[in-house]
C-alpha cells in the first residue's frame, strides 16, 4: 500500500479519477478527519506550497472549506474573486492566471461559471489545478465529500441505492455525484420534474424517476439538490410553491416510509422549497457532517496533489 499516489496531477472532475484514486482520497481524508478533531488542528505538510483560490463565481461553503483545508495544511494562500479584480477591466482568464502564477504559486483552486474552464487552464499552465465547480459541469470535491459522508453512514457503497433529487439539469453536483457513486459501485437514481431532467441522463446508466415517494422508498440515501434559480433564464416550473408540493421533501413524506433513510444536501438550502426545515434539521439529516467532512476531504485532495508535485 505504501507510496500510493493519485493518477493525475489535477482534479478536474470525478470522470478522470480511478476507483483506486477515490479510495486513496477517502483513506487519507479519514486520517485528516482525526487531525481536525485534535486540540491543535494543524499539520506542517504543505508549508512550502502557495495556493491561489480563484473564485469567478459566488461561494460560501466551498471557499471557506478550501481555505480552512489549506490553512490546516500550513499552506500560504491568496484569495481572488472576480467581482473585485481586473477581470472586470476585460482581462482574459489565461492572462489573469498566468499573472498570478508568475508570483510563484504552486496550486490553483478555481470556480468558474464556464464548463470546462479548468480543463482549459490545465492545458496551458503548469500548476496543479483543482476544480471547485465549473458551471453546470463538475464539482468533484463536493461529490467526494458526499460519497465519503455516505460511506461513514452506510459502510461500503457497493450495491447501495442513492437517489439524487431536484434540479439535475443545472447541477454540477449531480453529475460529479453520479460518476463518483458509480465508481464506488452504488446504484444511482435521479428524480425531479421532467423539465429539470437532462434529456440523455439515462445514458449515464442511472435510473430516472418523476415520483418522489416511490424513489424515497427505493433509496438508502437521498441527496437533495438546490433549485438553481440563478442559472434558470426561463421558467421550468410554474411556482416554487408548486415545486415544493410535488418534489419537495417533507417530514410527513419521510414518516410515511417504512425505513430510515439518510438525508443530504450540498447547500445552500432553499428552506421550504426542495426540503422543509423539519427535515433539514432532523436526525435523518447529515448536512452538517457533510460540511465537516468537506474540510477533511479537501485536505486529502490538496495533500495528495501536492505530493504529485
Amino acid at each position: 500500500m505504501a507510496n500510493q499516489q493519485l493518477s493525475s496531477k489535477h482534479l478536474l472532475g470525478i470522470k478522470d479519477l480511478s476507483t483506486e484514486d477515490i479510495r486513496l482520497i477517502f483513506h487519507t481524508a479519514t486520517n485528516f478527519k482525526e487531525v481536525i478533531n485534535r486540540p491543535i488542528k494543524k499539520v506542517p505538510s504543505l508549508r512550502d506550497i502557495t495556493i491561489a483560490n480563484l473564485f469567478f463565481e459566488d461561494s460560501t461553503r466551498t471557499r471557506v472549506s478550501f481555505e480552512l483545508a489549506e490553512k490546516r495544511l500550513s499552506a500560504d494562500t491568496i484569495n481572488f474573486s472576480a467581482s473585485s479584480s481586473s477581470v472586470k477591466k476585460g482581462e482574459t482568464l489565461l492572462d489573469t492566471v498566468n499573472n498570478i502564477l508568475s508570483m510563484k504559486v504552486d496550486m490553483v483552486v478555481m470556480r468558474h461559471p464556464a464548463p470546462g474552464a479548468c480543463q482549459f487552464l490545465a492545458k496551458h499552465i503548469d500548476a496543479n489545478i483543482i476544480n471547485a465547480g465549473d458551471g453546470t459541469h463538475e464539482h468533484p470535491t463536493q461529490a467526494l465529500l458526499d460519497a465519503f459522508s455516505m460511506q461513514e453512514q452506510l459502510g461500503d457503497l457497493e450495491g447501495k441505492n442513492v437517489a439524487i433529487f431536484g434540479d439535475i439539469l443545472h447541477s454540477r453536483v449531480a453529475l460529479s455525484n453520479i460518476f463518483c457513486l458509480q465508481k464506488l459501485g452504488a446504484k444511482v437514481r435521479v428524480c425531479g420534474p421532467p423539465t429539470l431532467m437532462p434529456k440523455f441522463i439515462h445514458k449515464l446508466g442511472v435510473g430516472v424517476s418523476y415520483n418522489v415517494r416511490e424513489t424515497l422508498q427505493w433509496c438508502d440515501v437521498a441527496n437533495v439538490l438546490r433549485i438553481q434559480l440563478e442559472r434558470q433564464n426561463i421558467k421550468y416550473f410554474p411556482t416554487l410553491r408548486e415545486y415544493s408540493q410535488y418534489f419537495g421533501i417533507n417530514r410527513q413524506l419521510l414518516d410515511s416510509l417504512d425505513k430510515k433513510i439518510v438525508i443530504m444536501h450540498p447547500g445552500p438550502i432553499n428552506r421550504g422549497v426542495e426540503i422543509t426545515s423539519d427535515v433539514a434539521d432532523s436526525e435523518h439529516s447529515i448536512i452538517l457532517q457533510q460540511v465537516e467532512n468537506g474540510v477533511a476531504v479537501r485536505m486529502a485532495v490538496l495533500f495528495l496533489l501536492a505530493a504529485k508535485g
Partner: peptide, 27 residues
C-alpha cells in the same frame, strides 16, 4: 502516532505518502 503529514521529505522522490491511523486518546 502517524507521522506522514509531518515528514520533511514531502514532494521529494521516494517519500511515502500513505497515511496510517493516529490514535492517542489522552493528553
Amino acid at each position: 502516532l502517524d507521522i506522514t503529514f509531518y515528514r520533511d521529505d514531502f514532494r521529494r522522490p521516494g517519500a511515502s505518502m500513505h497515511a496510517s491511523v493516529t490514535s492517542i486518546d489522552f493528553l
